[in-house]
């Protein structure tokens, strides 16, 4: 089987590699780039422990081929370590016991971050709906929801580029 060249932006830096076409993005991130904050919690696309930002949107990196991410921008928790909003979120997760074992936490943080970039003061239902692709077995979600509610706004709203007009080929 042919290998494919994959070049993408990972946490702000160009990352070039050659992988088997079937390589999942999560394995590129964890095994090749050694960024292990991103976890694998299931192989059934449910748990969201593998959540990363792909062109600014949270996706399940265990259900994306590395090749699909070629030419695109990938951010993991490591790449957001200096981000002021992420720092606030982490502080609140610690303060409100938004984690116990910590295995789902990276994915939870990225989904929460993505929500707060879209909406500064989401209500409880909006929070819970945005987290519904991230499963936590320890906290019962209450501490996580509290943490997100407690983040004080002050971050500029994210601008996601609108989808392009359809074109006929």
């Amino acid at each position: 089987m042919k290998k494919v060249k994959v070049e993408l932006k990972l946490n702000g830096k160009q990352f070039k590699t050659e992988v088997e076409a079937r390589t999942l993005l999560v394995d590129l991130v964890r095994e090749l780039a050694d960024q292990t904050a991103t976890h694998i919690g299931c192989d059934t696309s449910n748990c969201g422990a593998c959540t990363v930002l792909l062109d600014g949107r949270p996706v399940k990196s265990c259900t994306v081929l590395a090749a699909q991410a070629g030419g695109r921008d990938v951010k993991t928790l490591e790449g957001l370590s200096e981000d002021p909003l992420m720092k606030k979120l982490k502080d609140q997760f610690l303060d409100k016991h938004g984690l116990q074992c910590g295995f789902c936490t990276s994915g939870m943080l990225i989904s929460s971050y993505s929500l707060l970039r879209k909406k500064q003061k989401p209500d409880e239902l909006e929070i819970r709906e945005s987290l519904s692709g991230n499963i936590c077995r320890c906290t019962g979600y209450g501490g996580i929801v509290d943490a997100i509610k407690s983040v004080q706004p002050g971050i500029e709203k994210e601008r996601v580029a609108p989808a392009p007009e359809i074109q006929r080929n």
Partner: peptide, 25 residues
Amino acid sequence: IPLLKTRIMNVDLLIDISGIKGSGG
């Protein structure tokens, strides 16, 4: 992709259409 992971389904080639200009508009 979840189906391919079960290996119940196998393919020789995947044709990614998401990069086609305008296909996602």
